[in-house]
Design a protein around this nucleic acid. Structure first.
Lengths: 230, 230
DNA sequence: TCAAAAGTGTTCACCGTACACCCATGG
DNA sequence: CCATGGGTGTACGGTGAACACTTTTGA
């Protein structure tokens, strides 16, 4: 075995674009941390870390996510590598961005405080360090695409949710109002939900029925293809 | 400025999935090289190389592509990073895969010989080294998606082409037969081609009209959205 | 009894799909 | 004159999009 050129080694980082859906504000949000280290101490940033030499890159991203949220087994998707020479002022670093969808209820509030992290609505994201703003843009585009192709929204909701919550979530993802009747019709036609006998009374006097995502139904109907228009 | 942890540096490679469309065989093809160095000497492989420390990752991919084909200003799209610990047996290496679309007529035949490279139809791709087969799968999926969203096919054709060639190309990309009338109708409705007065007489006695991609028309109609069904 | 959200059906326009015949030409 | 590929139009069905009223119930 020959050895490769050793002079050109660089650091590989991972950065996590963490999406959540705030039930109360009915808002798609992003979890950002306030850096308490140089460079750019005090600026807002994605949660990141360095890939270890003996660690799969995907595992590195999962580790970093767990460090901030306490969550494991989270939906994660790699976006791409960001590799401009000067993207990190300290040293040449290639960063691989991952986008994660979490159920906000589940995550560890204490851990978040430890990193001075905060949720931001996707329409009010502050300026971010390095090329993190481009990563976020990329992530939102990917989320939209993914949501139009797979029933991915359920990752962002609690186990039980109402049709209205689901609709609000998709409205946030696609940044457009959807028609209540058309939405219900579409979702029902996909045949991937189980309607429960319970109602959620939080948001109205009448109450609205709760649903669960039914993975078995989904796997049977997988041939369906598109879920929503892009 | 603090310094990051220096122990974890790794090599970053780029690998190019190079697509071409063979006019004669009407086949979508992939350009592969026969490795004349260890490890895996003699095996088929994607063209790759290492990113230099002072080089944007995208530029590294372009450099590698030029090295093999002689071409510059080629359509390239990053797929993603591949970063399993053991993907390269020699040493920990993260590879970023790029997919490139080239016009086969333009490329440098001599250079290809120098690398013992060869074109393979996408349905007859040999076993590849490392995780290159997964990269190729990913690239084909991305090509399909991209072709359904952008008028990308023209990158693979000569400047002037017939409606039949374009159709064959899309048939290859989507691996399905398309109806001649529906195809023509669809393409015409997009209003992105300029019909020329010339005919190509190679494939029939009657001859078939040549077209050119009209970038101005395309940019004006960009709002169109989808191009083909996925 | 009233305010506020939940739930529900129909119509129309457009687009994707299926489908078959005539045309032009070189040999 | 004929074999070969090139070019063209129509009819149907499905899906997305627009649109408004009734129901429930806690205050």
């Amino acid at each position: 075995m020959t050895n490769y050129d050793q002079d050109q080694k660089v650091l590989v980082a991972v950065d996590c674009i963490i999406f959540g859906f705030d039930q109360n504000q009915e808002e798609l949000q992003l979890l950002l941390i306030k850096r308490d280290f140089e460079p750019e101490r005090g600026s807002w940033s994605l949660m990141g870390g360095f890939m270890q030499k003996n660690e799969n890159i995907r595992d590195a991203a999962a580790r970093v996510l767990t460090k901030l949220t306490g969550l494991t087994d989270v939906y994660m998707e790699q976006l791409k590598a960001f590799g401009k020479v000067d993207r990190d002022p300290v040293e040449r670093t290639v960063s691989v961005a991952f986008c994660a969808l979490i159920n906000v209820e589940d995550h560890d509030q204490e851990m978040i405080k430890r990193y001075s992290a905060r949720w931001f609505g996707i329409s009010e994201i502050p300026q971010l360090i390095f090329d993190h703003d481009i990563m976020v843009e990329t992530a939102i585009r990917r989320l939209r695409y993914r949501a139009s192709v797979q029933p991915i929204g359920f990752e962002l909701l609690p186990k039980k949710f109402t049709m209205r919550q689901l609709q609000k979530l998709y409205e946030e993802i696609f940044s457009e109002k959807l028609d209540k009747r058309n939405f219900t019709k579409k979702i029902n036609s996909l045949d991937i939900l189980k309607k429960l006998d319970e109602k959620d009374k939080q948001s109205s006097r009448k109450g609205s029925f709760l649903y669960k995502f039914d993975k078995n139904k989904y796997l049977n109907n997988k041939a369906n293809g598109m879920y929503f228009k892009v």
